[in-house]
Design a protein around this nucleic acid. Sequence first.
DNA 1: ACCTGAACACCGTTCAAGT
DNA 2: ACCTGAACACCGTTCAAGT
Lengths: 212, 212
Amino acid sequence: MAGQQRQGVSPERIVEVALGILESDGPEGLTMRRLASKLGVAVTAIYWHVGDKQALLDAVVDRIAAEVGEVPVTGEDPVARIVSMGRSLRHNLLARPHLVGLVHQRGRTAVMFQPARRVLVRELTAAGLRGQDAALAVHTILWFVSGSVLNVIQVERSPEQHPPAEELWTADDVRDAPDLLEHLARPIDPDDLFDYSLGALVHALVKRGTSH
Amino acid sequence: MAGQQRQGVSPERIVEVALGILESDGPEGLTMRRLASKLGVAVTAIYWHVGDKQALLDAVVDRIAAEVGEVPVTGEDPVARIVSMGRSLRHNLLARPHLVGLVHQRGRTAVMFQPARRVLVRELTAAGLRGQDAALAVHTILWFVSGSVLNVIQVERSPEQHPPAEELWTADDVRDAPDLLEHLARPIDPDDLFDYSLGALVHALVKRGTSH
DNA sequence: ACCTGAACACCGTTCAAGT
DNA sequence: ACCTGAACACCGTTCAAGT
């Protein structure tokens, strides 16, 4: 009720505004000076509240990691639940490419995937995996999800840098199977590819882990 | 024979020295001014030869991508050959984390994996995959390899940022299977994890693609 | 054709000083 | 406790000028 505080900066507000700049202009748009002017304050005020730029980025990244990792889980069996979680997580991360890129660059991806990790432990256990098989499966699935997201984010951030599909293939490579060329050259929907790959992977891990 | 040219800069030499700085000091160590002084030349000379910093990075990245993607392939059957190639590729990339990180950041990963892509097309065809199944498998495997490499590179570049294993797990998560906790907490050798995962994935893809 | 020097606009950061 | 102003060292980049 009394909480107006129209002027005066807090660490929370600083991180908030920094997040806004990152989301709209990307990492190179976030300078201490721009941030300060957007806060209506002198540059040095930021140093008093959150410290230097490294500390600011740490605060921002921890905030993102906590927000973006929460995902719903639906489905009948454990495998379906894992795949659905992977898809939600991916969708979540792709909505904020710049922020996720920053989390990755700062080495905090493991923290961001913390909630997903919990779900994986639960579901893989339910699927019958035990001991090292379960541990390996957890790591592998997280690896795959984060890896695929990072790849897509990269494409989305700088599409002009990416070679068109035709450049990546030549007729020489596929002379044994000519029809392969058109399948390779046709741009594959990353969503479809993700579903296909993750499904195959989870299936293989569960099977391998429960077969002995 | 006459090629001495002790002084006088060429685009090649500029890129070479830039690569050296990147490898030893990382991306933030590469400034136009440091590069120029290391070349024994005025900053502006670089602009004449290779253009601005964006152009310099493009040149550097293309050079890395061409060098680092070449890998040997050994093994009896197609699956073994693919797995062995993945391991070599991974080993190759992990030897130059800074450079690979830069390639990724600039959106040129697809170019870097060009030679691997050729091998995959050949081996997957030999394994009996056709059409869309083969195309999906190619993309999936490349996705997985690049993703896993990026994850490890991140850990290697900033180990202090990474949460220790104990923080990532709590007893609550694994009360159904207590022994799982120690397996999860034990640091997994990334090499072993990679072999395990890639093997499972390739097997699953080949099986799925040849079963219908 | 190739290279330099000076200048400009922009960084992050520190530090003494204000209230 | 909280914030400012001035200053410093460092960026990338441009441009006129030299040979």
